[in-house]
Amino acid sequence: MDRIPILKLGDALLVTIQVDMHDRLATALEEDLTNRIVKHKAHGVLIDISALEIVDSFIGRMLDNIAAVSRVLDADTVVVGMRPAVAITLVELGLSLAGVRTALNVERGMELIRLRHGAAERDVDVDNAS
């Protein structure tokens, strides 16, 4: 069965979705990502959807699920590169993806993860010091 490749990028994972997603592929991606977050102790997940021409409620739900699961595993999910037409359509569809962080491109997404993770580590340091 086809699987969407997951790349390791520092302590983050990068998924670039380039195919028209069918449902099994989406379910498989959710599973794979969960396993890989744990295996690599990843702090962030970047999902690049700049190649996607549509995001329907099924894919929207997948993104929401991945974000929720990764939060539980102490990793931030950032969805990057959503196209304007896709964004307009998603809003009209009624999906806000409130639990998902977003960035314009992979680079900005990485920055966001580093920033958040760096801040979290500093907090821990402060706690230890006191």
Binding site: V80, V86, E92, L97
Partner: peptide, 12 residues
Amino acid sequence: LKTVAAARLMGA
């Protein structure tokens, strides 16, 4: 609100 929501989805 829709414009703001769409921009947020794109990361702005």
